[in-house]
Structure formats: structure tokens, C-alpha cells
Design a protein around this nucleic acid. Structure first.
Lengths: 220, 220
DNA sequence: TACCGAATTGAACTCAACTCAGTTCAGGCC
DNA sequence: GGCCTGAACTGAGTTGAGTTCAATTCGGTA
């Protein structure tokens, strides 16, 4: 029910926008965007359905806002985590770990983001939705650029083997967010354990050399 | 427009089921499930909207069928690709590569599968949808088990370092399917190039040892 | 007290998914 | 040929979640 990560622009003190966002994160995260009734969100907040339209132009507008705020937080967390890493490897570990330093609500937000990322592909008919969508795309590009910069830094310094930085970034990003497909708070795996495992996976993938194959091993 | 990968049970020769599935794969893949109108699928096939309900109980039932067939193909392709690999490493490469030996239509199918995978989490109210959903879950579990078996084999033979096989399987699977989030046929990256890159990433992740850290490197 | 804008509402509307009652089509059988 | 059966199909109508809108309440300010 914490709403710090969901407050955005300055709203009036009576504004229910953060409460709506929090309720929507719960609903969208548990049931999925499509399956949750917009009116259910209103019920949880304790207002009529139509009051929602005072804050959001549509259900999709609310979803896009949630996604944008999640992306904004991801971008900020990455920069904060990596800004004073002495080496590229340290930055790699810090950037990957930052992806998992999240509250349960932010985990839900990431699940929502990843489940509905395809929504960003096609234009929206309404203006405010389109604005949010473009902001999301900009943030996605920025997050991707963060990783590209980091990987290029490692390649320049000789810490990482040479790879196409763009595809490597997308792959790392895909690896890190794939967790939200199956991770549930309170499941068999704790988030710190997942984090450690995926940070190590990331490092092996980015920094590791291909192990010797059967053939080369036999030849040596 | 090829429909081999979409034919399932024995239908009458006049059946438009495969044509509907093919049209739905196009629409859902390009626009997304939510954004495509069910009637648009009917138009592409050249039948009235209501004729769709002769073959599918609902739009969601059609989607779940597409997902099930995609999963069935993935499972079969993995088994075929890995069945006579001499080593676990060879099986790892073959299994990963099999995920990308796909026609453009199958690529779309995988994109759809991955974009709507959250649909499998919650029960469906209608019976036929629920049947398809449970079949999908069974296939997902089977695909995951395929990878667990492969990774356990590698650990037993000493080819792979010891990792929790379940989380490692999920991670590999997440890594491999994350490609469908951004890959487009005819984009800057060719599918064989993507395949090669991701197979190598997979191998480094599963087989690789953690490279020496700054500290241990300095100590040696 | 009067006023203003933010917040809220009930009733009505839209539109895509879906239902239903009935029609057409293709092939098997006498 | 005519008849029958079941698969394939249709147009008209229903449902319901999302949305609009005109009207109302609320909270603070002059």
C-alpha cells in the first residue's frame, strides 16, 4: 500500500491519484490488466467508477502511467547504483543487482511493465495515452542506452570480451526482467537469492569467455 | 500463410480452423491480442464474425489454442534437437539453437505466446478455455523439465558447474524467449545471427565459471 | 456569506464480444 | 433424381465493461 514510488507530478492534497495507482498495481499485478475490471479499482479506492476519469483518461492511460513510473524508477536506480563503480565489472554487478532492490509493490510494477510491454509498440488514438506511451518508449531507450554505455565501457577497458553492445544490452535486459515472469514474493526463492543468482549469470554472460569445446579440449 | 504448424486435430476438409488460426496469428502478432478485433480475423478469413464461434468458443479460446500449439512445437523441437547429442554441452547448444529454428509464422506464434503467458496464471470460467489453459501449463512444465533434465545431466557428468537446476532452467528459458520481445523478421539482426549470439550466451551462462574478481585477480 | 475549482456522481451511451434461432451447403444413401 | 444429416454459416439481437456528460458536492479562500 506504499505509494512513494507512484507519486509523480504535484497533485492537490485531496488527490486520489496515488491511491488509484496503488490499487491498479495490485489488481493489474494479480489478475492481469485485461482481466481486472476498471470498476474493481474504483471499488478498492472507495470511489465511483466515473471518478477515475477525473484522474485518468482511460484504463489504458492508467496502465501506461504505471509503466512509465516503473521505467523511471528503473532508470534512476541503475544510474544511482552504477555511478561511482571503479570498474566496469563492478558497475555490471551493481546495475544488475539494482534491478532487484525493490519493494513488493515495485516488483508488481515490474511484472505489469513486462507483461504489457507490447502495448508500447503501436500508436494510441487518444492524446494523453500517446504522450505516456512515447514517454515510456523514451525511457526504455534510455535504460537500453545505460546498458550499452556500460558494456562499451567494459569493452574499451578490456574487462569484457568484444560483443555487439546493442544486442548484448538487450539480452542482458531480457535476462534480468525475465525473472518477473515467474518470481512471486513469498515463493520458494527469496528475492536476494534470485538477485545473487542472476547477477552471477549476467557476469558470466557478459564477462565470460566461451569455455573450451570438446574438440579444443581434446586437442590441448 | 503456411498452416502446417497450426493444424491440430482432425477437422473436416472444409474446416476453416487452420485458416482462422493463421489469420489470428498474424493479427495477434502484429497488433497484439487486445488490440485486434475478433471481427478483423473473420474478415481476413472471409467469413462472418459469428462463424468464428463454430470453431472457437471465444477469442481467448483461439489465443489459448495458438499458445498450446506453439508450446507443443517448442517441446517437440527441443526433444528432436537434443535426443542424440553425445555430450551435455552439445545438447545445450542444440536445445538453445532449436528455439530459433523457426518460420516467420512460428516466430509470431512465439511472440504471441510470450506476450500473453500471464494468461495462463488464472483460471478461466469457460470449460474449453480452461482445458486449453491447463494443456498449456502442462506443456510449459514439460518444456521446463526438458531443460532441468539437460542441466542435471551436465552437472552429473561434470560438464556444468553445480547450480540449482530449476532456477537455472527458468533463467535459460527466460533468456532464450526474451528475444521475441524485440526481434522482428527483416530487422537489423538476422535470425541466424541472433541464434548464434544467444546460443553462445547460454553456454557461457550455464557452463562458464565466474571470472576472477578484481580482488582475486590482484591477489594472484 | 459568496465564490471557485477540484472532486464526485448517476444515468446514458458505445462498441466489441458474444448468443441464438434459423439457413445454406456438401456428401451419403435409397 | 429426391431425401437426410451434420457441418458450416448468417443476421439480428443481447451483454457488459469502458466511457461520456451534465449536474452536484466538497474544501478552502475572500
Amino acid at each position: 500500500m506504499s505509494i512513494e514510488a507512484l507519486t509523480d507530478a504535484s497533485d492537490g492534497p485531496r488527490s486520489k491519484r496515488p491511491a488509484i495507482l496503488a490499487a491498479a498495481v495490485e489488481c493489474f499485478g494479480e489478475l492481469g490488466y485485461e482481466a481486472t475490471k476498471w470498476s474493481e479499482v474504483a471499488d478498492r479506492v472507495g470511489i465511483g467508477q466515473t471518478a477515475l476519469y477525473h484522474y485518468f483518461e482511460s484504463k489504458a492511460h492508467c496502465l501506461l502511467t504505471i509503466m512509465r513510473l516503473g521505467l523511471r524508477n528503473s532508470d534512476a536506480a541503475f544510474r544511482r547504483a552504477t555511478e561511482d563503480s571503479p570498474t566496469a565489472v563492478a558497475a555490471l554487478r551493481a546495475g544488475a543487482a539494482a534491478a532487484y532492490a525493490l519493494s513488493p509493490q515495485e516488483v508488481q510494477q515490474n511484472r505489469i511493465l513486462q507483461a504489457n510491454i507490447a502495448l508500447l509498440a503501436n500508436a494510441r488514438s487518444s492524446e494523453r495515452e500517446e504522450t505516456e506511451r512515447l514517454a515510456c518508449r523514451e525511457l526504455v531507450a534510455r535504460v537500453e542506452r545505460n546498458w550499452v554505455d556500460l558494456i562499451e565501457r567494459g569493452a574499451r577497458s578490456g574487462e569484457f570480451p568484444a560483443h555487439d553492445p546493442v544486442i548484448m544490452s538487450r539480452t542482458v535486459l531480457g535476462l534480468l526482467v525475465s525473472v518477473w515472469r515467474w518470481y512471486r514474493p513469498g515463493g520458494s526463492q527469496s528475492l536476494p537469492a534470485v538477485s545473487e543468482f542472476l547477477v552471477d549469470c549476467t557476469v558470466r554472460m557478459v564477462v565470460g569467455e566461451l569455455p573450451a569445446t570438446e574438440a579444443t579440449a581434446a586437442a590441448s
